[in-house]
Design a protein around this nucleic acid. Structure first.
Lengths: 327, 327
DNA sequence: TTGAAAGCGCTAACAT
DNA sequence: ATGTTAGCGCTTTCAA
């Protein structure tokens, strides 16, 4: 890779002039500009991000930290982030943390090293202290998950309300025995959705049965399947299931089908997220739609504004209950 | 973030000594070492990747370029890459190219800028000239897709053989009218799988019908659904479908079900990849399993060896036909 | 064993 | 309008 010196030499100017041509900030004579551009082309020169950063602390790179890329929920958000960020001249680096604090720490350090200009964080299992220390010095926004009592900007939905509405929908269908397949409650959304579930039951004076609440340790179909197997093994089995992720709901659907039961008559199922696969199942899945793409766009805008030094406000977006065949 | 100077000052030594402590390469007196380590702890110091790279050209970062993270096929590979790379002290940055040459170019430049030590490339739609120029100077390996007449190391499977076996399986089941739902044939795997499909038909003297071959422009359930809709609209409709991706097969399954036809009796369906979804469908999907996790591990090892300056050989892994309910 | 200093590629302040 | 140069944080050679 050619350096700025080589370009300067070839163009017969100083490195400063080359830098000026590249960065367009100050005036350069037409003649010099043309010669520099010519030299850049001939040498196939690209400015070094390293050198520039070291000097400027600007990389035009955004880090997106997510627990796992296999959850389609994140893919949609990322589409939004990328479309928005690229439109504004930023590039995206995806960092899978696997909810592992050590890996998180590595990516946080990339930020401290000014290898990126900002971080969009979608992983909740972060070390809080570490996060706040980072957020106090560098641009950070949270997407979907957030810190309740911190002051880091975020974009999310009203998880409690969404869950409440979902469960109410099941109750209105005449279901009373409603199970909950929940994630690990280290996730804020899991705690909120559980609270919405309980709120709806309470409102209709339905007792909350611990035996119908299952917490998985893993976001996958298999966990949903396993949860459903557990629920079906109860002597008093539920008549409906609210799963906090479409992945769980799809696994549950599968397990119900394999046991010769019918959805929704024997057991109604409702999921969360409206991932594209939720429309491919048999039967199709009732689910709570989150505006994932929009969440992505908004979080990208938020972080870019933050990088520019602006104040940004947190945002709670609307969700929507999508009623399909499974209820 | 503290710098090496501050640490040196606090420890009462020179920056060189601090560097020596950090990098462990040369001898430092016990006394100095302890004082430096103390200062590092007190200042919460982390070496700057930027400064180090600029000097050393080593980042311990790997770039993984993939067309889209929404295809679960890639998620599995990435798991393998990450587990292996992290085990060897490398970190992973995921770069979604969207098959866009401009975005590809940006990530290639990060490599040229020595922001990463190597690239694992899973996107085929790369500008060939650009790729070879890059690969001639920096460590690059290809995973799944590769360049037939280049000399870039790769790991892949025998796509032609796998497709041939899949189609033969359908023929053995008594199916003669076999449709193909294929990707855009800019992908090498798409060309190879088509060739395997044709080879099987020829072997059994079954004519190849263009009307039963559908190329999608997009890897999604919806494309598979659309393809199937097209095939079902033929007056002479196929009795079996070979889809080159489970995503297509799942979309096709959905479309067949919605039309009141039965799988596999009316139409048998076979997919490709054995993504985890493929076991959740109704009926479950027969598919060709690729050792995705292993492909990931191997490509990570290949790139790391390449970075170390070793010669690495390309590898073709085994696949396996997984027969389930859809055939 | 240690320190001083050069230099990696770049930008911006300053000088011309 | 252009050039000279210091310095961003680090490693490594050379000298002591």
């Amino acid at each position: 890779m050619a350096t700025i010196q080589e370009v300067a030499k070839r163009a017969g100017v100083s490195v400063a002039t080359v830098s000026r041509v590249i960065n367009k900030r100050s005036k350069v004579s037409m003649k010099a500009r043309i010669r520099v551009e010519q030299a850049i082309k001939e040498l196939n020169y690209e400015p070094s991000v390293l050198g520039r950063n070291l000097r400027n602390s600007e990389s035009r790179l955004l880090l997106v930290l997510l627990p796992s890329i296999s959850n389609p929920f994140y893919s949609e958000i990322i589409n939004g982030i990328e479309d928005t960020a690229i439109g504004q001249g930023y590039n995206i680096l995806l960092c899978e943390t696997d909810s592992n604090p050590e890996r998180e720490a590595i990516y946080f350090n990339m930020m401290r090293n000014r290898l990126a200009d900002g971080i969009i964080l979608m992983d909740p299992t972060v070390n809080q202290e570490n996060l706040h220390e980072l957020a106090s010095k560098y641009p950070v926004v949270q997407c979907s998950e957030f810190d309740e009592d911190g002051n880091i900007s975020y974009v999310t939905i009203n998880n409690q309300l969404a869950a409440y509405q979902a469960v109410k929908h099941l109750i209105k269908l005449g279901k009373q025995k409603i199970a909950l397949i929940n994630s690990d409650e280290k996730f804020l959304y899991a705690r909120e959705r559980r609270s919405g579930y309980e709120k709806a039951l309470k409102e209709f004076a339905i007792p909350i049965e611990e035996k119908w609440i299952y917490n998985t340790d893993n976001l996958s179909f298999e966990s949903g399947q396993q949860a459903m197997r557990f629920l079906l093994n109860q002597e008093d089995r539920p008549a409906a299931v609210f799963a906090v992720s479409d992945l769980f709901a799809i696994g549950a659907l599968k397990e119900i089908n394999s046991n010769g039961l019918r959805v929704p008559d024997d057991i109604a199922v409702i999921g969360f997220d409206k991932i594209s696969f939720s429309n491919m199942t048999y039967p199709t899945l009732t689910t709570v739609a989150q505006p994932m793409y929009r969440m992505g766009c908004i979080s990208a805008n938020m972080i870019i504004n933050k990088i520019k030094g602006e104040e940004v406000d947190s945002l709670i977006l609307d969700h929507e209950l999508i009623i399909r065949e499974s209820t």
